[in-house]
Design a protein around this nucleic acid. Structure first.
Lengths: 162, 162
DNA sequence: ATGAATGCAAAGCGTTTGCATCTGG
DNA sequence: CCAGATGCAAACGCTTTGCATTCAT
């Protein structure tokens, strides 16, 4: 029922990601600004399927005057540099997942009723995918797997509909 | 006028789909109008990963004054009634796939360089997915699987590199 | 100091909606 | 007839961009 991601020290993971991000900025000759750092840090801390909107709101707790443009630009940067992956679950806004060195490519199981998003990582599934791609002489870059289903949570408003 | 993609009787499949669509309209007390019929027919005929925009352009060959609103509304109707599935490949616009009774749920392999979209259907993959969902006491409704990879086509740009 | 980053507002883009007008059952 | 469908334009929500200002290096 409950699904915890890991007991690893989250702060360490965040710090590691931030350090790598900062390194990359230097390598690229880009600047490390206050808002950029905060946005990246909060992005790694939140660690959810965050929308730009949610991130703006959160970051404004630390940097009240931050603009959407800056957050979008930073998200774009994070994606370009491989620290984030954009996801689309069909609700009109793009969500972003941080890419941790450890947990590389998880997939998603989404309840069609309550919209709860559960992550999973299934090695057998990944093997099969690898085989499918290799059979066709492709070289895989990334995958997007979303399973839409009904969960059996009591709190799920399984509305019958008309 | 030369755009057949299989040797199967495409016309039959289209006719079948149209008939089913028409039936459904009657069941729902909805009307069968000229533009609605054309849009649905062209949608089934094109049978690609069509965007609303492309469909409008195509339909205007038959119904010049058709508006985006009508096409979007018809696509929405097709989705609601189970004749179409919206897909998002991350390029900013929604694409639609017709749902044929036969070929139920195919997945996609997309070249990150030339954007070519290849369909596939892998029973083993489907089995594993079924297991993943069942293990968590979910009931699957639909899935979205997109594999982004580099193809080895000669016509594919961006091929070599470092 | 100087080019990059920010914030604001305005523009873009795909999609949806309000409304007056048509049309099919 | 009359609810439902259409076409147009305007509205919408998310995302991007132009530009003057600010800031890191």
């Amino acid at each position: 029922m409950s699904d915890q991601k890991s007991k690893q020290p989250v702060d360490d993971r965040v710090a590691e990601a931030l350090e790598a991000f900062h390194e990359r900025l230097q390598e690229e000759g880009l600047k490390s600004t206050r808002q950029r750092d905060i946005i990246a840090e909060r992005f790694f801390v939140l660690d959810e399927h965050i929308t730009a909107d949610e991130l703006v709101e959160d970051v404004r707790n630390y940097q009240p005057r931050v603009g959407y443009a800056t957050v979008y630009r930073t998200l774009k940067l994070l994606v370009e540099q491989g620290f984030a992956v954009p996801k689309d679950f069909g609700d009109g806004q793009t969500r972003y997942d941080p890419v941790h060195n450890q947990d590389p490519q998880h997939d998603h199981l989404i309840c069609v009723d309550c919209r709860k998003i559960m992550e999973f990582n299934d090695p057998e599934l990944n093997e099969r995918i690898q085989a499918i791609v290799a059979d066709r002489n492709y070289t895989i870059r990334r995958k997007k797997i979303e399973l839409y289903a009904e969960c059996d949570d009591e709190s799920c408003p399984n509305r019958p509909e008309g």
